[in-house]
Amino acid sequence: MNLKELIISLSSLMSVTGYESYSTDKLVEIMGKKFDESYVDNIGNHIFVKKCGKENAPRILIDCHFDEIGMMVTGYKKGGFLKVTNVGGVDTRLLPSSEVVIFGKETISGIFATTPESDRRFGDDSLKPIDQLVIDTGYPDDELKELCPLGTPVSYKGEYHLLKNDKLVGKAFDDKACGACAVYGIDAVDSLDLVADVYFVFATREEIGCVGAGPAAYGIDPDYALVMDVTNSWIPEMTGMKWTAIGTGVSIDISPVTNRKLTKMTAKLCEEKGIKYTLRASPGSTGTDANSTGTVREGIPTVLCSLPLRNMHTANELLLLDDAKALADLVSEFIKSKEIAEVFAR
């Protein structure tokens, strides 16, 4: 599987926050023999280990979150409709008429109802909050209740295609595209070249407050960590600087919550190995799993590397394959770097 295929196959898995277990089997199948061990911890993190073969080896944590934003069934409306609430940051601007997949006892498709023209006042562009929207399923009411009990997860329908210049479009690249880069990057390295045992964590519940990464890091107790997430790339609707545009390679975050020295060394690594990168100032909290890993146990030195992404949290997220390739390369170099291991391995 090449990187593009890996991104698509991981991103298209259903992994709405809290329901990642629906895809455990498929995930393990995709991972194949790339790792030596895999397990799911108590809270639901999917953890994959690649051993370096040395005894008492240090441990590197590579964290991406597996969950994607989505919705959850909260009730029913006569006529075959479902009521839902959001799980994570769902943009209601995108919902009317959008297609969704409902993962009940059977997987069925649904469509968010729109405001009928007869109810539309001229020039009205107001958006209803999600609890006032309904999903049309085309099923009889009693059957629907049976098929989709309360709590049934709902996700965007994912369709993947390439636009000009190798720009890949689809749902849930946040953060499974980074996950694909991690897996691809780790797989590209021979075990003998690893400077440590590599723990790749596909973390749970990031979208509702970075819940899974902390417990994962606590359980693994790594020497140092690389957290990878997507970052908002500039699009014309945004005001201000054209920051972290796609095409600028890996975005390395400099933040008070991450380790400054590890960050600098990672940037230097990119420099040496010819990996395209940009530095990004994140003066506050990063809003990623890096917030959690840094403060676990005695404090885990963490670096945050991001993949620029347009249209985040929509069914049409857009990334540039070159950026993803750069991120995968960085992962490979990071787990081979003796220089970093010398400083940060305990």
Binding site: R93, D125, S126, H161, L163, N232, N311, L318
Partner: peptide, 23 residues
Amino acid sequence: IEGIVASKAIHMQSPEERKHATP
């Protein structure tokens, strides 16, 4: 030619922007 209508991420929207569709 395939295209998508770009959409600023929800993280970057003001509370007011979240209440109205983009013209």
